[in-house]
Simulated assay, not measured.
Amino acid sequence: MTRSRATMVGFVAVLLWSLLALLTVGSEPTPPLLLNAICFSIGGTLGLIWTAASGGLRQLRNVSWRVYAFGTVGLFGYHALYFSALRLAPAAEAGLIAYLWPLLIVLFSGLLPGEQLRPGHLIGAFLGFSGAALIIAGGGGGFQTQYLPGYGLALLCALTWSGYSVLSRKVGDAPTASVAVFCVATAVASWILHLAVEDTVWPQGALGWASTIGLGLGPVGLAFYVWDIGVKQGDIQMLGTSSYAAPLLSTLILVGAGIAAPSWGLAIAAALITGGAVLAARASLSS
C-alpha cells in the first residue's frame, strides 16, 4: 500500500470519530466502563471475524505480548478517560481539551526517526487547533472549577491517544489484525472493572442502544483498524493535522440533527481547519 493511500485509509477513522461525541451523549446514562465493555465487545468480535475470514489468525501467534499490552492500554485508557470526561464535565469544554491530541501527534511525531517537523506542520496545526477550539468552545461559558476532574481526565485522554498513535510506529511490524486482540482484551478488562466499581445501568430505549451499537461498529470499531493502517504506513503528521476535521464534521452533524444552529463562527472555523490542512499537506509534499 502506498503512503498516500494509507493516509486516506487512516482519514476514514477521522470521519468515524466525528460521530463519537454525539453517540456518547446518546448513550447516557450508561457508565463509562460498561460503555467501554459493550462497545469493545462489538468492535473486537467484528475484528476477529474479519481476521478469521481473511486467514489472518495464524499471524496473531507471532505478535509479542508487549505489543498486545501496548495496544490494550492505549485503547482502554483513551476511551475510559474520554467517556468519563464527558460524564463529569460539559461536553464542549471537555471536548476542547481532549482534542489537543491531533496537535500533540503532529508535535510528537517530529521526534520519530525519519520524520521532520517543518514550519508548515506547526502553522497548520496551530490554525487547525484554533478552528477546533472555535467550534467546541464557541458560545460556552468558560471553564468552571467544579468540572476540573473532568478537564483533567480529558487532558490525560489527549496525551494517551497522541502517545499511542505516535508510538505505534515503534510496533509498525505488528499486523493490523492484532487490533482485534486489543479490542477483545480491552472489553475483558472493562467488564471486570465495571463489575468491581460501577453500578450496572444499561442503555435506555432504542436511542440508547442504537448509539451504543453505533459506537461499537464505527468510532470504537472499524476506526481503529483503519487508523492503525494510517499511522503505521501513511503520513502521520498529515493525519494528525487533518484530525481537526473531526470536530468540524461533528458540529455539522449536530447542526443537521437540529441540536446546534449554524453560525458565522462555524464558517470561520471551517476556513481555519481547511487552511491548516492545506498548509500541512504542502509541508508533507515538500518533505
Rank of each mutant, 00 (worst) to 15 (best):
R3H: 14
T7D: 11
M8V: 13
V9H: 01
F11S: 15
V12E: 03
L15V: 10
S18Q: 02
S18L: 03
L19P: 00
S27R: 02
P32E: 13
L33Y: 04
L34E: 06
C39P: 00
F40E: 01
G43C: 10
I49V: 15
L57M: 12
L57K: 07
L57P: 06
Q59K: 11
Q59C: 00
L60F: 07
L60S: 06
V73W: 04
G74Y: 00
F76C: 06
Y82R: 06
L86M: 13
L88W: 06
A89C: 09
L100G: 05
L103F: 13
L111D: 04
L111K: 12
L117Y: 05
G120T: 07
L122P: 02
L122W: 00
I123G: 05
F126S: 15
L127F: 13
G128H: 07
I136T: 13
G138R: 03
G139R: 04
G141W: 05
P149W: 04
A154N: 11
A154T: 10
A154L: 09
C157E: 14
C157L: 12
L167W: 07
S168V: 02
A174R: 01
P175L: 11
T176Y: 07
A185M: 14
T186Q: 09
W191L: 03
V201D: 00
A206G: 01
L215T: 03
L217P: 05
P219D: 10
G221T: 05
G221Y: 07
A223H: 13
A223E: 14
D228N: 15
G230K: 08
G234F: 06
D235I: 01
Q237C: 01
M238F: 15
M238G: 14
G240R: 12
T241L: 15
L249Y: 02
L252V: 10
I253K: 02
G256D: 07
A260R: 13
A261M: 13
I273N: 11
T274V: 15
G276R: 05
G276H: 06
G276I: 07
A277Y: 12
A281E: 13
